[in-house]
């Protein structure tokens, strides 16, 4: 069963008077529970593709379906709601909220959902922090943590809502190789344990071994799978 279906996806950006064709007709399907690596050099369109799949950016043309739901025609409020309930995000620069502690950062999406009790939210956040090995840092603010620790909190935050898909944009780019590897191992473990679909982008060939499927992108087009 495909969780992501993309057909004829293009994305153009206006850059001054010129138009940049970031995606030039992507067709891609991703099965539920897959761990997909989107590989390609800088500027090839990896981040744009993840942004469009995540509803963070809009497509110029084409179709993007998440769990059968067409994304390109949804209004902002519903796309935001879809992100909250069905998607998780991991960013290259971790993007934790600096004024919140590790636990509060993990709790954040659940608090936005307003669907769970306080105790349930706290229990889920602490369980995930334990799984990523950061229980003892739960009261620390992001500024008091290392890059690897921050990214593990970001993973916990992405997974706390039990999303269908986690989109990770170069999650290891700002980490040393050992820490990067540990991050990918966590993602691999979570993927296997929870059957969550993971899509991560990278330009580092060394991390391909963690992916079950690799999609190569070049100049806004799929170069091979």
């Amino acid at each position: 069963m495909n969780i992501i279906e993309i057909h004829g996806l293009t994305k153009d950006y206006a850059l001054g008077e010129t138009t940049v064709h970031a995606l030039r007709g992507i067709d891609l399907t991703i099965a539920k529970g897959d761990l997909v690596c989107i590989m390609g050099p800088s500027g090839c369109g990896k981040t744009t593709l993840l942004n469009v799949i995540g509803g963070i950016d809009s497509a110029t043309t084409g179709s993007v379906r998440i769990g059968g739901q067409e994304l390109t025609t949804l209004p902002d409020r519903e796309i935001t709601d879809l992100r909250l309930h069905r998607l998780g995000f991991i960013f290259q620069t971790f993007n934790l909220i600096p004024v919140l502690t590790a636990t509060e950062n993990v709790e954040f999406p659940l608090l936005l959902q307003k669907e769970h009790s306080k105790s349930e939210i706290r229990a889920r956040a602490e369980k995930l922090l334990e799984e990523v090995g950061l229980s003892e840092y739960r009261h620390h603010r992001p500024s008091e943590l290392s890059g690897g620790q921050r990214q593990r909190i970001a993973i916990a935050r992405a997974l706390v809502t039990n999303p269908d898909i986690v989109l990770a944009d170069e999650p290891t780019a700002n980490l040393d190789s050992v820490t990067g590897a540990s991050i990918l191992e966590i993602m691999q473990t979570m993927n296997q344990r929870q059957q969550t679909t993971f899509l991560f982008s990278t330009h580092d060939k060394n991390v391909l071994k963690y992916a079950r499927t690799v999609v190569h992108i070049k100049d806004g087009l799929i170069d091979g799978e």
Binding site: L84, F89, F108
Partner: peptide, 16 residues
């Protein structure tokens, strides 16, 4: 601004 982007990506609505 990046924090705003992150929160919106996480699923925070505009009015929030």
């Amino acid at each position: 601004t990046r924090e705003i982007g992150t929160m919106r990506a996480m699923g925070m609505q505009k009015n929030h």
